[in-house]
Design a protein around this nucleic acid. Structure first.
Lengths: 214, 214
DNA sequence: GACTGTTGTTACCGCAAGTAACTGCCGGAG
DNA sequence: CTCCGGCAGTTACTTGCGGTAACAACAGTC
């Protein structure tokens, strides 16, 4: 016991931080986003104040935790997004990568989508329109960049690319969340349906005969 | 008679409940979703236990509060969705109605998007894929119904309509949230850009010459 | 050996959710 | 008139969590 304790003590602060993050990860993935600091500290074999010395407050710990997972997922998505294939294939690969990730580790997904919890000091009123998780914001910007670089949108391409980036990410998120909860179809089918939507099938298909309004 | 007495009591209880909800509304819209039960009770001129007698727990109060606003917004959106106009106009009107609503009352928006708070007993692990606010779920289903009824999608129209419903709602939500936070363009422009996206412009536009991957 | 920084502890504060137990009131029964 | 059951409302409490202050051991340094 003492030897391992001493060995642990001699490690650098960075390594300690990683250790703590891994312990926090285990607890959060087991108990959900409402895991208490006490529980995390206990899992790490220490007590609360040490966590606070390393991460400031709970928001800091959660932000650090979220950053790890976000970076990992973003790297995977970047790979799918940058693959040398035609556009439709890239879009499908990216959708599938995202959906496979949230399907494989739904607890991570649930944690990542928690919008910053508190972290809101009483400023004035409260910050509006910052519901989305940082992951979605980063993803939207990333996709906007890719669109801007790869697609020729004519004038206003800057604005248009950003709108589309966040819109497509939102579509992926919304459909993915619903799908993960109800599992109404296979992943391949979902990917194809969403790609079809983006490919304008909504505009092409006919109205039903006898529908109201016509 | 007992029945009339009970009816009167129920009626007054209903009125009281509405009064309390209105007070809660004021506090939540002033202080944000972290308003304390004490504060709400004080605003209503009473004390905590009465709130608990009426709503069970905080989740119950918040659910009742959210239902009011969700119903109101859904009614407005249904009107836009059912208007007798061509499809593109209906889509734009619906998008604009939603965006105008979140623009006009961002605090309501912020409150509605809070995903059910806790309310999760430790079953096994924790419920996966239920991040989205009830509003978004209901909206997605609503839109799916409209699509299914009005558009001829061939086989698998059931699944396809639901995927598209939730996907489009997610797109609206994601882009709307980002737009509300950064205000990068006018509402009209946002509406048009999103409608363009849905109308397949992404599939139509050309790649940039010299891009990677080709 | 005293001086200082790191790493850890215990014990506490403040605050919010939720509850138990009491009080005052009103309308009907004897 | 009096007594009594039920309902609105209160005070005062428990529990649990985020966050912090103050203290305790141990390392290396002069």
């Amino acid at each position: 016991m003492e030897s391992t304790q001493q060995a642990e003590q001699q490690r650098s602060a960075q390594q300690r931080r990683r250790q703590l993050l891994e312990a926090a990860d285990r607890v959060v993935l087991r108990d959900g986003p409402h895991a208490s600091m006490n529980a995390i500290a206990a899992e790490a074999g220490i007590t609360k104040p040490i966590l606070y010395r390393h991460f400031g407050d709970k928001g800091g710990l959660y932000r650090a935790l979220a950053k790890r997972h976000t970076d990992a997922l973003l790297a995977a998505l970047r790979a799918a997004l940058d693959a040398p294939a035609e556009r439709r294939r890239r879009v499908e690969a990216t959708l599938d990568t995202y959906l496979a990730a949230i399907e494989a580790r739904p607890q991570v997904y649930r944690f990542l989508m928690h919008p910053a919890e508190d972290s809101q000091l009483p400023e004035q009123g409260f910050d509006v329109g910052r519901h989305s998780a940082p992951l979605l914001r980063r993803l939207g910007e990333e996709l906007a960049t890719v669109i801007r670089e790869r697609v020729d949108l004519g004038p206003d391409s800057e604005q248009l690319a950003r709108v589309w980036g966040h819109g497509i990410v939102g579509m992926m998120h919304g459909a993915g969340d619903w799908w993960l909860g109800e599992r109404p179809c296979s992943r391949e089918q979902l990917v194809r349906s969403l790609a079809d939507l983006l490919w304008g099938r909504l505009a092409e298909v006919d109205d039903r005969e006898g529908g109201p309004g016509f």
